[in-house]
Design a protein around this nucleic acid. Structure first.
Lengths: 337, 337
DNA sequence: TTGAAAGCGTTACCAC
DNA sequence: GTGGTAACGCTTTCAA
């Protein structure tokens, strides 16, 4: 039913070796033969089996990408970047949503290994770094995206979260805000911890303090962030500037403010993180710290592919810079003070 | 370096056939041997090669999913559903963004074929249905998601777009709106055409008319939808109810209204389509026609897997029902009339 | 209950 | 230039 290299060879009256050569453009084949064979492949709609080729030692030209949830706009945008770069370089990518569960991560890692992907990119949280070591032992290329796992010696493309937090703080300070608060993701997420840290450092550098009661630990979703912000806004001396560790949370903050009858940014300024499509879609549009999502994806792919060529390059750690994107959810504090 | 079935066999002092049996839980193997072999596989961190297995005739347990753009929230949510169902059933999925280019579709189709995926799901527009026929000839399972290609005999999971349009119209009519308008995607997209048709039919059924000047053809993005709505709102007798063929466009409409100094829903009601996360995040939150995105994905996977088992079941065409989700972007016309 | 051996569709080396 | 053939790592008869 499905044409194989044998069918082509028979039809063309040549050996399979010859056919293989023309498929791969290798060796010396006369123009005439090459054209003949090509014509026959065309006619029989022949598709060489990548599976069989992989078995002989060739790459599978497939990469794995682990993210917590592909339906989350941030990861969807990241996935797009990864896919684009991969396609340019001749690879496909299988995407796996882990819901941040180690068990799922481990299962996927094994699965991808069995399918002999050429490399894996990990953009999901991992509690127990140990589960990566089997991969490293087998020297399968791995790249971490926007995650740090200092205990492990792997390629990493991250962003400067601390700087990101500082940018947010500086912006708010510059607008004259002095009563500041932050909504963070669970602090076991290192990127979140760093964002808060950067924020705090900048605040303190300005001679102000960020009381720990003003730092609310939440999960990454709209709803729970909204709850936390509601708590913040109920204080008698409520904050006028709130930094959220991602755009979803900032949306929760927007909703909380609205529910509280507060205007944004007149009564309270809100700043997010990530600069996903969500930030441009809210009303008012969100001021947010932009991650270079596209570059993050591109670089990760490049690291992997480079390693596939250069065999065992030592792990690289790239740190990209975030940038502040000012929209309309932040404003001068003088408006209401 | 990487352990193979031979290594295991040697180490266990059995034949590779035996090892294969215990891997697949087939045949009759004494409990003792089985345990021994398992232990050794464990110890050597053995991962059977799915590649080699596939070559012997087993499935690859990989599915392909083509969408226009995985970073678009609608397709990201769809992809998540597809992935979830696939994982439950033991499959992985490789996701391909086509940007709606036929050329890209064709390339991906060939690629996936070469990688011997067990089936493909197509959620992207295809101008020339012909490019699917090679697949069908090779009897590779294919399922269309939210797309119709009447000329082809393939599995299809779609939604009742006409009903969706009607739902939107009925809602607006019920609120007392009589000056209606719609923003559509390019009308070559059949789903969009059907939505407009359903909308128009419902309007006419109510004894009103939908002038063609009030139907603006746009692309699927925020920006161009905004432009079109701006045009609509500049009319002296501007519409009070606007139906957009997707949530992105509805967001464009929201922005246009704002720019025009119009309040939503007091001055103009806006209704979207899809019910992506975007609809819940805007201000005001969007009333929208909800697609059962999750079910769409689940069903598509199930159709494919069913076919893999039952060999050549005849193509099924499923049509799922959309539902109106009322939020705050639509309101009674009496407010401003 | 276990093992030998024939594929599966390629690639790559070595003759000719 | 071209062809023969041994891998690649597994599954699956068929014998024993």
């Amino acid at each position: 039913m499905k044409a194989t290299i044998y069918d082509i060879a028979r039809e063309a009256g040549v050996s399979i070796a010859t056919v293989s050569q023309v498929i791969n453009g290798k060796g010396k084949i006369s123009e005439k033969r090459r054209a003949e064979v090509m014509e026959i492949m065309e006619r029989l709609n022949y598709q060489p089996s990548a599976i069989a080729a992989a078995l002989t030692g060739k790459q599978t030209y497939t990469l794995g990408l682990l993210v917590p949830d592909i339906s989350n706009p941030y990861f969807a945008e990241l996935a797009r970047a990864v896919e684009d770069r991969s396609r340019q370089l001749g690879y496909s990518v299988v995407i796996c949503s882990t819901d941040n569960k180690d068990e799922r991560v481990e299962r996927y890692l094994n699965l991808l290994q069995q399918k002999r992907v050429d490399g894996m990119m990990i953009g999901t949280g991992i509690d127990n770094a140990e589960i990566l070591s089997p991969l490293l032992q087998q020297s399968i290329p791995v790249a971490l995206i926007a995650r740090q796992l200092p205990s492990l010696s792997v390629h990493t493309v991250a962003i400067d979260d601390r700087l990101g937090g500082a940018l947010a703080a500086q912006h708010l300070l510059q607008l004259g805000h002095t009563r500041l608060a932050v909504v963070s993701e669970p602090l076991k997420v290192s990127s979140s911890k760093e964002r808060v840290r950067g924020f705090r450092e900048a605040v303190e550098e300005a001679g102000l303090a960020l009381e720990s009661s003003q730092v609310r630990e939440s999960t990454a979703d709209i709803k729970s962030a909204k709850q936390e912000v509601l708590v913040l806004l109920e204080q008698t001396n409520r904050p006028t500037g709130i930094f959220c560790c991602n755009d979803m949370q900032a949306i929760g903050a927007l909703q909380a403010a609205k529910e509280h009858g507060l205007r944004v940014p007149e009564d309270v300024s809100i700043i997010g993180f990530d600069n996903t499509i969500l930030a441009s879609v809210t009303n008012p549009p969100l001021t947010t710290v932009a991650q270079p999502i596209e570059e993050l994806g591109y670089r990760a792919v490049d690291l992997l592919i480079d390693e596939l060529k250069d065999e065992h390059k030592r792990p690289q750690k790239l740190v990209l810079k975030p940038e502040l994107v000012i929209r309309e959810s932040t404003g001068d504090v003088s408006i209401h003070s």
